[in-house]
């Protein structure tokens, strides 16, 4: 983003309020939690829809699906999609416009990821400065944004395989797009498990996402 001036960028550096700096700005916190709700609704209603015509040799237990039956699951899925899409678009727009993505997530280097992975596995990864992401975090957060885009686009391609047939074709046709959508869901669920586990292990990161510091 060559249009962002150094002065503007400086404004975006963590602000000092009192003696503590803001780690997560208010807009990030708000969009994060709305996204969390939307994602959970989409995943649970999506499992309900999956159960109507399973791609693999298993179904999701009804205790963790949303909607009660296929029709209910579809109603939830096609309602929560608006929440997910509108919220996601605001997040992407602000992430790019404020320079947050570039500042927080880039660059991602192979050496950095390998080094930080090794440090994490040997318990030597520092969490002292929560406003700076390590390379593993950068990779995962950037990756999950890409997966989020893929899951929305593949979902649209399944929803509108005639009107958006060019999009469906990009995902390899209708039947393949269903698998892409499923794999993207599985990636998000995998991310969620690690993400929630780490938030619990490092409670101050959870606090920062709630009250900002």
């Amino acid at each position: 983003m060559s249009t962002i001036t150094p002065a503007f960028e400086a404004q975006q550096e963590p602000q000092v309020v009192g003696s503590q700096k803001i780690i997560q700005p208010a807009w990030v916190r708000m969009l994060h939690w709305i996204n969390a709700v939307a994602m959970v609704l989409m995943i649970m209603s999506g499992w309900q829809i999956y159960n109507a015509s399973p791609l693999f040799d298993f179904v999701f237990p009804s205790s963790i699906t949303l909607g009660g039956w296929l029709g209910g699951g579809l109603l939830w899925h096609f309602a929560a999609m608006w929440l997910l899409m509108v919220n996601g678009l605001i997040y992407l727009t602000l992430g790019v416009a404020t320079g947050r993505f570039r500042r927080k997530l880039l660059p991602i280097t192979v050496d950095g990821v390998i080094g930080d992975t090794r440090a994490a596995l040997t318990g030597r990864l520092s969490h002292d400065d929560l406003s700076r992401y390590n390379y593993v975090q950068k990779l995962l957060y950037a990756g999950i944004i890409v997966v989020g885009i893929v899951i929305v686009l593949s979902g649209l391609s399944i929803w509108k395989p005639v009107q958006l047939q060019w999009l469906t074709a990009i995902f390899g046709g209708y039947d393949t797009a269903r698998y892409v959508h499923f794999v993207a869901m599985a990636s998000i669920v995998g991310f969620l498990i690690v993400h929630v586990a780490l938030a619990i292990l490092v409670p101050k990161s959870l606090r920062a996402m709630i009250i900002g510091r």
Partner: peptide, 22 residues
């Protein structure tokens, strides 16, 4: 359907504020 759907609707209550905004 009616019974179970209702229960699921209720468990999903947390999202309603957000949905109503839209």
């Amino acid at each position: 359907m009616p019974d179970l759907t209702r229960r699921r609707f209720i468990t999903g209550g947390a999202s309603l504020g957000a949905l109503s905004m839209l």
